[in-house]
Design a protein around this nucleic acid. Structure first.
Length: 508
RNA sequence: GCGGGCGUAGCUCAGUGGUAGAGCGCCACGUUGCCAACGUGGAUGUCGUGAGUUCAAGUCUCAUCGCCCGCUCCA
C-alpha cells in the first residue's frame, strides 16, 4: 500500500518533469531544497487554479474585494503578528510541564567513577562550568563526599553535553520536572533580509511568511476607499516564504510557496455563522473542481489544537499518496489580528456601524489556502492509467491526466489527420480561431494521429479536434473526448463554442 | 535535525577499476491515414558536484548538494 502510493508519487513526479509541469528549482546547479519551478504546462494549470479561486471568491461576489500587497513589509508588522519571537535561539519545550528553555542553556551532566556512571542530571545553566556545579549540587550527599575526597587522581570523570549537541538516540529530559523535551528548534521560520544599502540591525526586514498580514495592515485603507461595509472580505493571492526545517513531499512543503487567502470581516455576533459558511463553501470549491469526496475531508480542530486567539478552525484535507494532508485551513481568528495591529501601530482599526451606531473591532474568518498544494492535489487526482485500443484493437496502457476541463493547461488540440491535401491549413485556421477566443490551444501535425492523441492525454487536454478528408468537402471535423475516447463530428465553425460550453464560464 | 536508500541521455534504467550503453521519447525524410504504426537516417551525457586513492574511477574513499522513505518538526 505504502509502496504503491510511493510508486504513484514517483510516476507523477516523473510525468511532471517529462511533460513540463514541475521542475526542480535551479536544477542545472544541483537544485535547491524546498524550491520548485512550474514549466509550460504547470504554469497554465496553476494559473487556472488561481483564476478559479479568484473568480469564485472575488469576481462572483459583491461582498469581496481583492488586494495585492508587497512581500517585504515594515518589520513591525511581524512583531504585531507574533511572527518575530525568540529570534536566534533554538528552543526546547518540555512535553510534560510545558516549560520552554533555550537549547544552549540546558546541559546533560554525567559523573563517572572508574568509568561507571554514578550520577546524571539535566540542568539549566549558562555554561559548562556552572552546569557541572549545578549537577554536583544535585548529587546525593554520599556521592558528593566521595567526589570531593577523590578530586585528584582521575577516579572521577565528568561528561557535560549541551542539549542541542546530543546524539539523536539520547532523549533529553526537563531540568524542572524530568519529562521528555522536544528536539531543539528555531521557532522563527522567516527569511531575513536587509532593506537599503546598510546591512545592520536597523535595516532588517523579512520576506512575508503569510499574505494575511498585508490584508490586516490594509484593512483601514480598504474600508476608507472601497465603500465596503461589514460583513465583507478581502482576498489576496501571493508568494510567501518559510524557512522550513524539512521540506518534503514534492511541492507540498516548500520554502517558497503561493497562498490564496481571504480575511472576511464581520460583527463578533455573526462570526460563528460566517465561519461555518466559509468552511463549507471552501470545501465545496475543491469538490466542484474535481477532487473526489472520498479523498477530501473536512476536519474540525479539537479545542486543544486551537491557537490561543482562535475560536474555531477546520482543515480541508486531501488524501495524497504520501498521506492525508492539509490543503486549506479555515479559522475564526476573532479580533486578535486587528487588535494587535491597532496596538502596535497606534491606529484605530475599529469599525463604526452607521445603522446600529455601534463601534467595535471586527472579527475575522480566515480561509487560507495553498495554491501549490491545491495544484498538487489536482495533479494527484488527475493521474490515471487506463487502457486504450491501438490500431490493431489490442489494448495498450495509457497515461491520462483527467483534469477538470476548467483546470486543464490546454483546452483543445487541433490536428490535421495527415500533413497534406490542405488539411494543415484548415487545422491552422481552426487553431487560430481558438486562440482568438482566448482558448489555450495546441496545434500538432507531427507523426501519427494516435500518438498525438496520447501526447495530449498525458497533459490532460480534454478535447482533440482532427481535420480529415471529409472536412475538405463538408467543413466538419471530429472532436475527441479525452476520457471516453469517443468522437463526435461537428462543424468546424462550432469548435470554439463546443469547447467553451464544456470548460465552464470565465473565458479561461 | 537523526537514520536508511538513491543520483548514469528528456523519461525508465543496465553498466565486474580498463572504449559511455539499452528501451522508450525527440528530430529529419519517406510510406501509411483516427488512437503510443513502419522503414531509413540523426541529435542528445559536467555519469549530481568537489576532492582523494590509482598507470587508469561511472565503478573505490571522503566531503558536499539534491531526491525518496522512516522518525522528528510544522509556533
Amino acid at each position: 500500500m505504502a509502496e504503491q502510493a510511493n510508486d504513484l508519487m514517483e510516476k507523477l513526479v516523473s510525468l511532471c518533469k517529462r511533460r513540463g509541469f514541475i521542475f526542480q528549482s535551479s536544477e542545472i546547479y544541483g537544485g535547491l531544497n524546498g524550491c520548485w519551478d512550474y514549466g509550460p504546462m504547470g504554469v497554465e494549470l496553476k494559473r487556472n487554479v488561481k483564476e478559479a479561486w479568484w473568480d469564485s471568491v472575488v469576481r462572483q461576489r459583491d461582498d469581496m474585494v481583492g488586494l495585492d500587497c508587497s512581500i517585504i513589509m515594515n518589520p513591525k508588522v511581524w512583531e504585531a503578528s507574533g511572527h518575530v519571537v525568540n529570534f536566534n535561539d533554538p528552543l526546547v519545550d518540555c512535553k510534560g510541564c510545558k516549560a520552554r528553555f533555550r537549547a544552549d542553556k540546558v546541559y546533560h551532566v554525567v559523573f563517572f567513577e572508574n568509568g561507571n556512571p554514578v550520577h546524571a542530571a539535566w540542568v539549566e545553566a549558562d555554561d559548562e562550568q556552572s552546569a557541572g556545579r549545578e549537577a554536583f549540587n544535585r548529587a546525593n550527599s554520599k556521592t558528593r563526599r566521595r567526589m570531593q575526597l577523590h578530586q585528584e587522581g582521575g577516579r572521577f570523570e565528568t561528561e557535560i553535553r549541551r542539549v542541542d549537541r546530543l546524539p539523536s538516540d539520547v532523549k533529553a529530559l526537563c531540568p524542572l520536572c524530568g519529562h521528555e523535551l522536544t528536539q531543539p528548534r528555531k521557532f522563527n521560520m522567516m527569511f531575513k533580509t536587509y532593506v537599503g544599502a546598510m546591512e545592520d540591525s536597523s535595516s532588517i526586514a523579512y520576506l512575508r511568511p503569510e499574505t494575511a498580514q498585508g490584508i490586516f495592515a490594509n484593512f483601514k485603507n480598504v474600508i476608507d476607499t472601497s465603500r465596503m461595509k461589514l460583513p465583507f472580505g478581502i482576498a489576496q493571492i501571493g508568494k510567501s516564504f518559510r524557512n522550513e526545517i524539512n521540506p518534503r513531499n514534492f511541492t507540498f512543503r516548500s520554502r517558497e510557496f503561493e497562498q490564496m487567502e481571504i480575511e472576511f470581516f464581520c460583527h463578533p455576533s455573526q462570526a460563528d455563522q460566517w465561519y461555518a459558511y466559509w468552511r463549507d463553501a471552501r470545501f465545496q470549491w475543491y469538490l466542484s473542481l474535481g477532487l473526489r469526496s472520498e479523498k477530501l475531508r473536512l476536519r474540525e480542530h479539537e479545542p486543544a489544537e486551537l491557537a490561543h486567539y482562535a475560536k474555531g478552525c477546520a482543515d480541508v484535507e486531501y488524501a495524497f499518496p504520501f498521506g492525508i494532508s492539509e490543503l486549506e485551513g479555515i479559522a475564526n481568528r476573532t479580533n486578535y489580528d486587528l487588535s494587535q495591529h491597532a496596538k502596535f501601530s497606534g491606529k484605530d482599526l475599529s469599525y463604526f456601524d452607521e445603522e446600529t451606531k455601534e463601534r467595535f473591532i471586527p472579527y475575522v474568518i480566515e480561509p487560507s489556502a495553498g495554491a501549490d498544494r491545491a495544484t498538487l492535489a489536482f495533479l494527484c487526482e488527475a493521474y490515471a492509467e487506463d487502457e486504450a485500443p491501438d490500431e490493431n484493437g489490442a489494448m495498450q496502457k495509457r497515461i491520462v491526466m483527467r483534469f477538470h476541463p476548467r483546470l486543464a493547461p490546454i483546452k483543445v488540440a487541433i490536428f490535421p489527420l495527415v500533413k497534406k491535401d490542405g488539411m494543415p491549413e484548415k487545422a491552422q485556421a481552426i487553431y487560430a480561431a481558438c486562440k482568438k477566443a482566448s482558448l489555450s490551444a495546441f496545434y500538432d501535425e507531427k507523426s501519427a494521429v494516435g500518438r498525438r492523441y496520447r501526447r495530449q492525454d498525458e497533459v490532460g487536454t480534454p478535447y482533440c479536434v482532427t481535420v480529415d478528408g471529409q472536412t475538405l468537402t463538408d467543413d466538419t471535423v471530429t472532436i475527441r473526448d479525452r476520457d471516453s475516447l469517443k468522437q463526435e463530428r461537428i462543424k468546424a465553425s462550432e469548435v470554439v463554442r463546443y469547447v467553451q460550453e464544456r470548460i465552464g464560464a470565465g473565458g479561461m
